[in-house]
Design a binder for these strands. Structure first.
Lengths: 144, 144
DNA sequence: CGGAATTTGTTAGTGTACAAACGATGGTGC
DNA sequence: GCACCATCGTTTGTACACTAACAAATTCCG
């Protein structure tokens, strides 16, 4: 009905959409991550980091802490376990639950990689000044 | 070696890392997109949009225009073709190439969905004021 | 002209990510 | 006690996203 009014306001430019820009920024970040930490993916590292930070957690709880759903965290944890970075034992208080813990190897890997993770963050934000970085993080946080 | 100096500067807080925040923002955006446009994924819509915008393109060229590598764009185009939104014909000038074009159905789908895509962008940015949105987009653009 | 490098599209393999459905367990209210 | 409901972990299916390897076609360059 209003198609004749404002003929050009309907123009859709992909390159100006947040979603598309977000995807490209994400791609660049993932590239930086992969170049700096080749043997662990960002999600695997996130899960390991949270586990080291917390000490122990059930699988689903770890998923919630790292923003992964049950199906996703399962695969991530499986791969971490098969590498010997994480172990699982049944929760005596709840037979459904599995309690996950970082192994010594997992903790060592995290300690070794944590400084590099900081460098990854730095490199991702490198095109921005310090105030710009703070501004960006504050704005992104609101979109969570 | 330097582990005793500055004991707390090594603290790694996952929730403060750009990569993690970006991933969560992306998740929220994908959720908004899926709720508004159920029958097409963001990447499929992006490819269709670029094709409507350009008129025609080879498969790899479309991939470059939408920031997808050759392997990824193939799957996306295959799904668009199997839905009848896109057609392919050989390039007479270069036998390796396939020229892609949006079908009438594809153009209609794009015309129908483009307004919704604008709403998706709006909803994604809803927590921000107008000046904040411009600031965010400008900052993200620098991280491309 | 002819060999080398590049481009194009394809396939296989790995790793997220989400939805949907499932069985098993745990807690709650009646 | 028991039915009801939520939670936990799992599996299946679809869809990106990237790497690596490949064949065919094209282009570049000596």
């Amino acid at each position: 009905m209003t198609s004749e009014t404002a003929p050009e306001d309907a123009a859709y430019r992909l390159d100006e959409q947040v979603g598309f820009i977000l995807r490209r920024v994400q791609q660049r970040h993932l590239g930086i991550f992969a170049a700096a930490i080749a043997d662990l993916t960002p999600t695997q590292f996130a899960a390991l980091a949270k586990l080291c930070e917390r000490g122990a957690a059930s699988q689903n709880a770890l998923g919630r802490a790292t923003a992964m759903d049950a199906a996703t965290i399962k695969g991530v944890v499986d791969r971490l376990r098969s590498r010997g970075l994480v172990t699982a034992r049944p929760d005596p208080a709840d037979q459904r639950r599995v309690i996950l813990t970082a192994t010594d190897a997992g903790r060592q890997a995290f300690a070794r990689l944590a400084p590099r993770a900081h460098e990854i963050t730095d490199e991702t934000l490198a095109p921005l000044t310090i105030p710009e970085r703070l501004m960006l993080l504050a704005l992104l946080e609101k979109l969570t």
